[in-house]
Amino acid sequence: MSESSRSRMDAVLGVVLLLGMMLALYMAFIEAPREQTMGDLQRIFYFHVPAGITGITAFAINFVASLMFVIRKNRWWDNLALSAAEIGVMFLVMVLVTGPIWAKPAWFVWWTWSPRLTLSLVLCLLYVSYLLIRKYIEDPERKAMVSAVFGIIAFMDAPLVWFSIRWWRDIHPSLTSESGGLAPEMRPAFFTCMAVFQVLMIYLLRRRFYLESLSNELELIEREAGTAR
């Protein structure tokens, strides 16, 4: 893709995103009905849950990119994997921040070791580990390869983590339960937010990826100029 078409695409995506965000705010705060027991507090749900799902989508992208890197050994995939991991961690942090904000008034506890919240926490830790590994390896080829291996392991670990904590919750029931059903009137708002979060992720991913390829380019130029020596 040429430089100009790339930036045109980003601009279009940015405008779509801006409109989408305004729509999402409207849907979540005005259009969606007030929940009966929790009241307006429940509206955080429209941001909490999509952030989690979007974060996991980003990790899935990291997984695919890591796998592709191991096969192709092409820097492009490494840049994608890194971008996806950083953005995934960001979304998961949103989940972990909104979780207690929701839990405290609703269930009078800051933290519930509910399976979903626990999974979010563990995923967040896994991908922070991923970023830590990257930080401490200097050789770029090694960094890309090792982190790709870790990315594969981390994502394959997720279902096992999920299964283990679900089962663990079954034997140690907590005070809170996660309601599964969503009232039909709430669905439009939920799905709007979901879609907007995904677009946000894609937009950020593109920007982050672009930044990384710029930094690769800068590295190349500096190398050519020999300024580092």
Partner: peptide, 10 residues
């Protein structure tokens, strides 16, 4: 330990 414990959780 930083990278092992999250993975080993299950």
């Amino acid at each position: 330990p930083l990278i092992l414990f999250p993975v080993i959780l299950p």
